[in-house]
């Protein structure tokens, strides 16, 4: 029950992109085509789940044990960087076309603040190992949901008659704001 609650909370109610405004760079950068957005979402979900699984034991068994929890920022950043490197190698091996489609955005997952945010929230909320993995996966699902929805809207926008000064990134940010407003509606799902 607790796990389902964490899943719904992280993917919908406290969606990283639309309520915490984390990970806006890929959210705006890779959301022009649904196919690419979906692939980016999958890659990020994969990295996030692995991050949760890798940072939890290191935080609890290394940093806490040696009484140096303030090192969490540095430690998490290098773990995330290493994981992204690993994912890049894996995708390059498994699917060269996906590797080319993601291009520069794949290494940029390293600097996606949503991934670091996930690790920090996980520690702050004192989740157990299983809860952390569910939290990481749910955050990735939430990110995928947001970026795919955004890309769907942006594909339709291609044909819209947008005033000159709103074209491009401005209309994208306005839409992101509207989507965030809409996602606030999910806050009513859980009381208290």
């Amino acid at each position: 029950m607790e796990l389902i609650l964490i899943f719904i909370s992280a993917s919908l109610i406290n969606n990283f992109v639309l309520t915490y405004f984390l990970g806006i760079c890929p959210f705006v950068g890779v959301s022009n085509k649904t196919e690419n957005a979906l692939n980016m979402g999958f890659a990020t979900t994969f990295v996030m789940t692995l991050t949760a699984a890798a940072t939890w034991p290191i935080y609890n068994y290394v940093l806490v044990k040696f009484n140096v929890p303030f090192l969490q920022y540095v430690a998490f950043i290098i773990i995330i960087a290493a994981l992204v490197q690993f994912v890049e190698m894996y995708i390059r091996k498994a699917s060269p076309s996906l590797y080319r489609a993601l291009g520069i955005f794949l290494p940029l997952i390293t600097t996606n603040c949503a991934v670091l945010g996930l690790a920090l929230f996980m520690v702050m909320r004192e989740y157990s190992f299983l809860e952390s993995i569910v939290f990481g996966f749910a955050t990735g699902v939430g990110f995928t949901l947001a970026i795919v929805m955004m890309s769907g809207i942006r594909e339709e926008l291609e044909f819209a008659d947008i005033p000159k000064h709103f074209q491009g990134i401005s209309i994208t940010l306005i839409i992101a704001g509207m989507m965030a407003l809409a996602f606030m509606g999910f806050a009513g799902l859980i009381r208290g």
Binding site: V68, A75, Y90, R92
Partner: peptide, 25 residues
């Protein structure tokens, strides 16, 4: 000392893991 050692250890483990993955993949 503990900080330096623990970070160094984490870094070394990750580097080893990546080197292994690079060979494999």
């Amino acid at each position: 000392l503990i900080s330096a050692l623990s970070m160094g250890a984490i870094g070394a483990v990750l580097a080893g893991f990546l080197a292994f993955a690079d060979k494999k993949m």
